[in-house]
Design a binder for these strands. Structure first.
Length: 570
DNA sequence: TGCGGCTATTG
DNA sequence: CACAATAGCCGCAG
């Protein structure tokens, strides 16, 4: 797009982008200049210039992907808003208000007295004309614009692209004021581009072989039921397998925890609840418990990951699709629906590379303690990261065995208070004073409802939430200390992921799954070795950018596999 | 019908 | 069974 070049736009420069649901597209360059264009031109300009496209949210990325115009990088206003201000809500009007210091309560909504749209209440976009400014006299974005009215006419789409750019520039300035965090702008970029990745993950799906998946299911819950009657009969048969161990022919609904508890009581087993870990100790001595635990496993598969799950989420092209969010929850992890993040391990053997393709599986090793070392700069802990197994040097520094060292480390990061980690925890305090002080500070701040900020600059709001009983205060402390670790790990992971996404493109490598510390990359079989090498190089590159002093070592276990479940083939 | 509790799966 | 998430079923309130 020569026009963009004429406006002086170069690699990495912010360029506003708006894509209406019908594909009408506008771009806006710095200085307020903009023009209507097409997705095809955007794709070409991305190749030639590679600006950083400013989008309002992942929705724009979804339109781009749907239109076949995948771009390299973006600045996602919603993602950056979540980073800078925290919380889930990140619509344009909300982000705008925060950047302009306007009270969030005042963000205009559609007038409630207007009621649902009908023949007599013209939507805002249809009334466009006299007062066609997206910003109202009160300084807020107008509700009609923010709620979709921007797409009503080309002039509005253009204005919306300009406004995205203006908003992004304000966000960048706000990030610059986060002086206490080391890499806020780099994090904003990777968090943004992670939204592009999410749109692609949602669109591309995870390769899952239907026949293999059905074989897994058959082995656990039997063949696909022919009809409802057959399904009910199989269910009853599974139930009967447990109930035949019930005392006195007692019949209960196994799906009701209350009834199961009374069943167990009748069998002489008194438990406060019926969770598997609690029942496990009775497995050997009680055939009823053993049968119940097996039933639970099968029931879980049948109801959540069974044939209905395949029918609902596995498409005809052999891809399991769900929706992806780039930064969800307390600490800004990626999340996915359709069970993509909690699929039973047994189902992984059905995740198989397409013909002529291979999967590269890569796990970050012991990511949370390494992240703790990096974000705190604790010298002793950083030294321990030189080892492949970080818990070995930690154990020797603490003078305990490896399992104890691991429990102590995880206790410190998660805030466990029960159990017998007290002595090891005291030694942790002596061995890693910088890291432990960081965690203690986070805990204290969270208890006092003071907001937190991760290494990458993500705000963790601590207002609201549960009350001030001792248990709730303690829980808030655990939440806070963990949010900083989990959050920073999520930031590092996403930077790694978007680096792999970018560098892997020439090889035809596509990320097909992100799982908190694990990447699954799919690509041509002939490029498998190159992809595996590249994933490792991307971690090195990311680590250097993320933790520039280089004193903390990050490791990944990388292997080329046909199926996700496969052991390493390297 | 909506929602909290319980349960299981994952990192 | 600490921290995080998604998701299904039960029981109860409205």
């Amino acid at each position: 797009m020569t026009w963009l070049r004429q406006r002086g736009a170069g690699r990495g420069d912010l360029v506003g982008l708006a894509v209406a649901p019908d594909g009408t597209t506008a771009v806006a360059a710095a200085g307020g200049d903009g023009r209507m264009t097409s997705l095809g031109e955007v794709a070409m300009a991305d190749d030639e210039i590679r600006p950083r496209w400013v989008t309002w949210s992942q929705e724009t990325a979804q339109w781009l992907v749907a239109g076949g115009a995948r771009v390299a990088t973006c600045w996602d206003v919603a993602a950056v808003h979540r980073l800078v201000f925290g919380g889930w809500r990140a619509d344009p009007g909300w982000a705008w208000a925060h950047l302009h210091g306007l009270a969030p309560d005042g963000v205009p909504t559609e007038a409630p007295e207007a009621g649902p749209p009908d023949l007599f209440s013209e939507p805002d976009e249809a009334r466009a004309g006299a007062d066609d400014d997206p910003v109202g006299a009160d300084g807020y974005l107008r509700a009609g614009w923010a709620r979709g009215g921007w797409a009503a006419a080309p002039a509005r789409i253009l204005r919306w692209a300009q406004l995205a750019l203006e908003t992004a520039e304000l966000q960048r300035a706000a990030l610059g004021r986060l002086s206490e965090t080391p890499i806020p702008v780099a994090t904003a970029r990777s968090e943004s581009t992670a939204e592009l990745l999410c749109a692609e993950l949602s669109s591309d799906g995870l390769p899952l072989d239907l026949a293999a998946a059905e074989r897994v299911l058959t082995g656990i819950i039997g063949p696909r039921p022919r009809d409802e009657v057959h399904a009910a009969a199989m269910r009853a048969a599974r139930d009967a397998e447990v109930l035949r161990h019930a005392p006195g022919g007692m019949t209960v609904d196994l799906r009701s925890p209350v009834q199961v508890r009374s069943l167990l009581a009748a069998a002489g087993i008194d438990v406060p609840d019926t969770r598997a870990w609690r029942l496990e100790q009775f497995r050997e001595s009680s055939p009823l418990i053993a049968a119940l635990l097996e039933w639970r496993k099968a029931e879980r598969i049948a109801t959540t990951y069974g044939y209905a799950w395949l029918d609902e989420h596995l498409d005809g092209d052999g891809r399991l699709r769900g929706s992806w969010t780039g930064s969800d929850g307390a600490a800004g992890r990626m999340t996915a629906s359709s069970g993509l993040h909690n699929m039973p391990a047994a189902m992984r053997q059905a995740v198989i590379a397409a013909p002529g393709h291979a999967l590269v599986r890569a796990d970050l090793g012991q990511i949370e303690p390494r992240v703790l070392a990096a974000v705190t700069g604790d010298p002793a802990l950083a030294a321990a990261t030189a080892a492949d197994d970080l818990y070995l040097p930690v154990a020797s520094q603490l003078g305990v065995d490896r399992p104890t060292a691991k429990v102590a480390m995880i206790s410190a990061m998660y805030g466990q208070t029960t159990g017998h980690g007290g002595q090891a925890l005291r030694r942790m305090r002596a061995a890693y004073p910088v890291a432990m002080a960081y965690l203690d500070t986070a805990d204290r701040s969270a208890r006092a409802r003071r907001e937190l900020r991760t290494y990458g600059g993500r705000r963790i709001p601590m207002s609201g939430g549960p009350g001030d009983s001792p248990a709730q205060v303690a829980a808030r402390g655990r939440y806070g200390r963990n949010a900083l670790i989990q959050g920073a790990a999520a930031e590092l992971f996403k930077m790694w992921a978007v680096t792999v996404r970018a560098r892997g493109l020439p090889l035809g490598a596509r990320i097909v799954l992100c799982l908190h510390d694990e990447l699954l990359v799919h690509g041509p079989a002939g490029q498998a070795e190159a992809m595996a090498r590249l994933v490792g190089e991307c971690l090195t590159e990311t680590a250097r950018r993320w933790s520039p002093d280089g004193r903390v070592r990050f490791t990944a276990d990388i292997s080329i596999v046909r199926s996700w479940a496969d052991a390493k083939l390297e």
